[in-house]
Design a protein around this nucleic acid. Structure first.
Lengths: 194, 194
DNA sequence: ACCGATTTGAAACATTCGTTCCGAATCGGT
DNA sequence: ACCGATTCGGAACGAATGTTTCAAATCGGT
């Protein structure tokens, strides 16, 4: 009935994620998107309406992939302490492999837009809540297994772990060395121990 | 010899700090600055060269005032544990009183610009280092006084405390409630205890 | 009271911004 | 093979960007 699209929408969205992730919303121009995605202006606006819509779709794409991976990993945890430990060291590994020091797209967006864009703000908040809830469930299991301290509620510990990751991501984006990140993770983990 | 300036440069710089702090570098336009500072375009460019220079001066102003206050508070600490505790709760109090949820200008700038602007990046890094060093000295004293754990080095604990504050500031900028921030602080403090 | 220096105000600058438009090209269905 | 629909390419849009210009206003020193 019509001409076929000449690009893979999902792959294109991944490219958009990379661009916005690296430079943020305001510093990424429409021209940057045209160049970076390798498609025409018309196709871009035709497919994604406008820049802001493309950004929110990129954010959702990131959430589906990255947050989704975390949630499914925490879905059926056998060893809670190992799971949380792995999660924190994964942040270090990720920042090691990322020579652009992009940090975390959600954290970056929270800082750049959350306080001035209600819709994006609640998207970020919702993402945080889903992660924290998963953390809390895992930590609660760790408490029952005697791995984590019961001196604080699972919810409080979950807030703490989430905040630790945010802090790690800020440091990663600032380009601190691996040793510093490991210091942070080790101390944070010690706070959870029974 | 010449006409007097009709504005107070220092007061003007404080206004610039507030503007950049709230909206970030890219989202704050020259027009926003003209409106917000209440001076003319010419005076602005005449006094501060250009937008980026004004931004760096604002950042230094923030550093001098805020980081300076922290450093001088940590200069002659008698009770290390009390000092660190106060510092963390001060972040909560500050975010409570800030209805705009501006977070921390340094953290915001680290996220927005550190990875793409070398000069600003090293300004942020230098600021972080001076704070972490002051933390380390205070924590070392706390270790000697038997308040803080010796299981980790003072430097590692300092990295952790700094990262915790970054995490708090991200949360504050995202608009989380006071209870969550208190959870984070309490768990973080427990990690430092002997 | 005047001169030289500096600030001010408002208009104008070129450039880039995000977005739209439209003819040409390309596809699927009949 | 042709039609209808959709996408593509590139030019063009008005608005906003950061910055400059310049005459008028205002000051201090003599």
């Amino acid at each position: 009935m019509a001409r076929k699209k000449e690009f893979d929408e999902d792959e294109l969205l991944n490219k958009a994620v990379a661009l916005f992730w690296d430079k943020g919303y305001h510093a990424t121009s429409a021209q940057d998107l045209v160049d970076g995605l390798g498609i025409n202006r018309s196709s871009l606006y035709n497919t994604y309406t406008d820049k802001r819509t493309l950004f929110t779709k990129s954010l959702r794409q990131y959430q589906a992939k990255n947050t989704g991976a975390v949630l499914s990993m925490l879905k059926n945890v056998v060893n809670a302490q190992e799971a949380i430990t792995q999660l924190l060291y994964a942040v270090i590994k990720e920042s090691e492999e990322d020579e652009l020091a992009k940090g975390c797209f959600m954290v970056n967006t929270a800082i750049e837009l959350s306080s001035h864009d209600k819709e994006i703000g609640s998207l970020v908040a919702e993402n945080a809540k889903s992660v924290e809830d998963a953390f809390a469930r895992t930590i609660e299991k760790g408490q029952q297994d005697g791995q984590f301290t019961k001196a604080k509620s699972a919810k409080a510990l979950a807030h703490f772990v989430f905040s630790t990751i945010s802090g790690l991501r800020v440091s990663a984006r600032s380009g601190v060395d691996k040793q510093t990140l490991e210091d942070i993770v080790e101390v944070a983990l010690s706070a959870l121990k029974a």
